[in-house]
Amino acid sequence: MTGDQFPLWAAIAVSVLLVAGSLLMLAGCIGMVRFRSFYQRIHAPTLGTSFGTIFILAGSVVYFTVTQLRPAVHEVLIFVFVSVTTPVTLMLLARAALYRDRIERVQDVPASKDPLDNAEMQTSKKPS
């Protein structure tokens, strides 16, 4: 943090964006703790990866644009990367969880419509 000529409005904007983003991330992680089932918990991290990330990166963009320490381009890359990868991860994890729950016949998970999967479940054993 260099220079005393950093304008007050920019400081307030950066602070609000940073705190708002981190609070969203915290809300998501509290959700991880509070939710009862896995399928509820899968919604929790998206709070942090959608607008939590956007707010913190926007705060960083404002800070580096005002101080002109460097052009704010890395934030764009991080945003693109996070917004592309998170849905992919969550979908794959959700499908893995569905598969495991169906094999173990857990609780109220909807049955698979794929006959191949059903045949496989007759023969396969419980995963550990």
């Binding site: 304008p7 007050l8 400081a11 307030i12 950066v14 940073l18 705190v19 913190i56």
Partner: peptide, 13 residues
């Protein structure tokens, strides 16, 4: 002033 605000907000974040 803005220096103090930034310092504490980054710390809080």
């Amino acid at each position: 002033m803005s220096q103090i605000i930034l310092f504490w907000s980054v710390l809080a974040c």
